[in-house]
Amino acid sequence: MKQQIRQFDDINVVGLEHEAGDGLHAEVMQLDHGIKLTMVKGEIAEDRKFPLPLRRHALTMVFVAVGSVSLAAKAPHGRVVLGAGDAGLLSAGFAFGPTILSASEELSAVFVELPRAYMAKVFGELCPDGLKAFVENDPSERVYREITSCASIQSVLHQMSAAPVGVSLRSLFLTSKTYELVALGLERLSIENCDCRLTPADVERLKRARDILSENLSDPPSLIALAHEVGINDFKLKKGFKVLFDNTPFGYLKERRMIAARSALMKGEQSVTTVANQVGYTNLGHFAAAFRKQFGTTPKAMKKVSRIQISGAAIRNGMMGEAAV
């Protein structure tokens, strides 16, 4: 694998070339307080190892917008896999195992490295119990916490990927969005440790309800049926969802539908109508309105951008093949 580095002020854009002709690249930017942003984006023809941007006295937030990232974990977990829309907080111990970027037509992931000293300063004596392991424990241990998805995080990730500013303002834009992403992620991590009358059993039931919705985007159960399936009453289901996921069950379902639709459209293989039907929409107008509200663009425009990117990658790969001959 070769690396090509271009310098944009304080942003290093690292292009990763692979024998299979992958169009993958990473942007690395150093912020104040020792925080480091790494954005990985592009196409991957086959699974590949990726060195996590982790130091011994730091931890990392991982956000996956499109594609899949697999992280080495100690037994009995085996590996931690983050798919589209997933996020998590990792201790530095994960740097000692390989991170796998899974083969996909499109990958978009963000890594934010946070020094442990910075985390200790942010929380001081008010550090939530669920985060103390990251600030106080042996950094060689592999500690992982899920960051529950919310519409605000997905919106910021999309804005960072699109970055609707000129090159001269890109550094400023990404800096502000990185801090916003960190604040939202820490807020989501703190919520699970708040005094909100949710027992650990309630949290597990709510997460199971969330997973059921994610697994049944085109034909989800009713609110009453969902509550019955996970063993919780519908009132606590609605209230607990709002506390834990910053959304209603229906709002979360719509958010996951849009994430799945975006991933499908970025592959460029299916029509907007097919994608809409796959995520449970029979009315294209309603689908387009929901998509635009989530990502600030239409499904048709997203698919058009994807076709341009795929065509560009094909041309680049063809040129590389001719050069090899």
Rank of each mutant, 00 (worst) to 15 (best):
D47H: 13
K41Q: 09
E46F: 05
L52V: 08
K36F: 03
K49W: 10
V62Q: 09
R56G: 03
I44G: 05
V62C: 12
D22Y: 04
M39H: 08
G21W: 01
H33R: 12
S70V: 08
R55V: 05
M61T: 14
A73E: 15
L24N: 08
G42K: 03
K36M: 10
R79W: 13
L37M: 04
L54P: 03
F50Y: 15
A65R: 10
R79D: 14
L54D: 03
L59G: 11
E46C: 04
M39S: 09
H25A: 10
R56I: 07
E43Q: 08
V64A: 11
V69L: 14
M29E: 11
I44T: 13
M61Q: 07
L52M: 10
V28T: 14
T38Y: 09
L31P: 14
V28W: 07
M39N: 04
P76C: 00
V66R: 00
S70A: 09
M39K: 03
D22P: 11
H57K: 01
L59M: 14
A65C: 13
V28D: 14
A75G: 13
V66N: 02
V64S: 11
V69T: 10
V64Y: 02
T60K: 01
D22F: 05
D32S: 15
M61Y: 07
F63K: 01
F63M: 09
E43S: 11
V62A: 15
A72G: 14
I35T: 12
V40T: 14
L31C: 15
R79L: 06
E27Q: 03
K36L: 09
A72M: 10
G67P: 00
L24M: 14
A58P: 08
R48F: 08
A26W: 01
E27M: 02
K74E: 15
S70T: 11
E19L: 05
L37H: 02
V69Y: 01
H25C: 08
L24K: 01
L54M: 13
G23S: 14
G21V: 10
Q30S: 14
D32L: 12
I44L: 15
L54G: 06
V40I: 09
F50K: 05
L24P: 06
S68Q: 12
I35R: 02
Q30P: 13
A75M: 06
A65D: 15
T38F: 06
D32K: 13
A26C: 10
G42P: 15
L24Q: 03
P53F: 04
G42F: 02
K74G: 10
H33L: 13
K49G: 12
L24D: 09
G67F: 00
H33G: 07
T60R: 02
T60L: 02
